[in-house]
Design a binder for these strands. Structure first.
Lengths: 239, 239
DNA sequence: ACCTGAACACCGTTCAAGT
DNA sequence: ACCTGAACACCGTTCAAGT
């Protein structure tokens, strides 16, 4: 679904203004695809999802949207702002936990749904923490901080817990895509990996890779470590 | 020290071959700066350290090394390979723990020295886990796996522990540079941050930022969480 | 073996101009 | 207000040629 061609490449550009009495100007494509900040972000998202963020360029985007490159700059300050908007869009896709959960359930829900949203757009994982946070990502941070705020944790433990949880989510997501990349790359330059692993210097690494290849790193691993952190926090609650 | 100009920009290129009876060809600069894989990596490292990895380009590197761009390609397959070598060089700078430490001390030492090496080259933090690992990074992984291998942990807990430790190191490093970036960026576009934080929607985030600004996130935080993980592992040791 | 310039296929963005 | 092409200052890399 959500493929690559959101907007057709119809170069209609109706010069005949005869029967076209619409308020909308010039180009009318199916779906009312007028140039808009939202449309640009949507198309950029599709492009990043399809080809990875490295292949997202203003020029390709303009071609896809069937407009001049510089037209984009009427809706977006620069490429950095576009990427920020993209990342924040992913943050917006994070499912918000229902209000009736206790703090522990809320943290679990939030961790899981943040992981899910990121893995839905793997390209976001490496840049999530590097990109300047937009309002939706701020809202997620706020939510997690809030979750840990009034449960009786000493302030420094709350801070620690916040970072421990954030790091776990981020680290696990990274770990997931790393293994995907490793698999993909091994498929191409497999020789290089096997060659390295053949060396007995890296016996434990070989063991480790095989452990993961055997499918032992089920998603439970995520919850397991998550619960270790939550247990630790629970023990620190002053009653 | 380790500034930006490792090699002078002397365009000597001695055409007079009179008294020069050395075996070494053409260009002789102080310090014997012949074009070499090692020299290229060294210069690239200096460039990344000075201007960040985004500004590292083959062309700038060639200018710095006073050679044609394409000359570099006789020592390096492509830019990706260069970056891999760079990251692996940082891995090589990680201080190896002495052999007489117990597993817990070894893990602590390794975590700390990995963090230190990465923070010495902040540009490496975001790409550390994304870049294809070279031999030195493999060796670090091997060492950590080995450290956790024969101390009586069930295999899945050892795996969990390995990832928990890796994630902690990486997450903490990221956290450190994020706050640096935040500070740097706030200095420039400060308005945007303060404006966002002024919103009561983000009251906890504001609190959090102030907490860190007040210097509460001492390096002890690193050891604190590290020890939580190590405690958890210690409890899982079967005797 | 080692080095190279020209050329190709790309980038993001400024600027001055169009409607 | 909205859109644009030309131009500028960059990229990484292929290729064919030099020593």
């Amino acid at each position: 679904m959500k493929g690559s061609t959101l907007y057709g490449k119809s170069t209609v550009s109706v010069d005949t203004e005869g029967e076209c009495s619409l308020a909308r100007p010039k180009k009318v494509r199916e779906g009312d695809a007028v140039l808009t900040f939202e449309h640009i972000v949507e198309a950029a998202m599709a492009m990043a999802d399809a080809d990875g963020i490295a292949k997202l360029s203003m020029r390709r985007l303009a071609t896809e949207l069937d407009c001049g490159v510089m037209s984009l700059y009427h809706y977006i300050a620069d490429k950095e702002a576009l990427v920020e908007a993209l990342v924040d869009q992913v943050a917006n896709e994070v499912a918000v936990p229902p209000a009736d959960l206790d703090w522990r359930q809320t943290a679990q829900h939030l961790a899981r749904s943040t992981l899910d949203a990121q893995l839905q757009h793997p390209w976001v994982v490496p840049i999530w923490s590097t990109t300047w946070p937009g309002p939706h990502r701020f809202a997620l941070v706020e939510l997690l901080l809030e979750t840990l705020a009034d449960i009786g944790l000493p302030p420094d433990v709350a801070d620690l817990g916040f970072h421990a949880l954030s790091n776990h989510i981020q680290g696990f997501a990274q770990q997931q895509i790393s293994f995907e990349q490793l698999a993909a790359r091994a498929a191409i330059t497999g020789a290089r990996l096997e060659e390295l692993l053949a060396d007995d210097k890296y016996a434990r690494v070989r063991e480790h890779v095989e452990f993961h290849r055997a499918g032992h790193d089920t998603p439970d691993e995520f919850d397991f470590t998550l619960n270790l952190i939550l247990d630790g926090l629970e023990r620190s609650i002053e009653t």
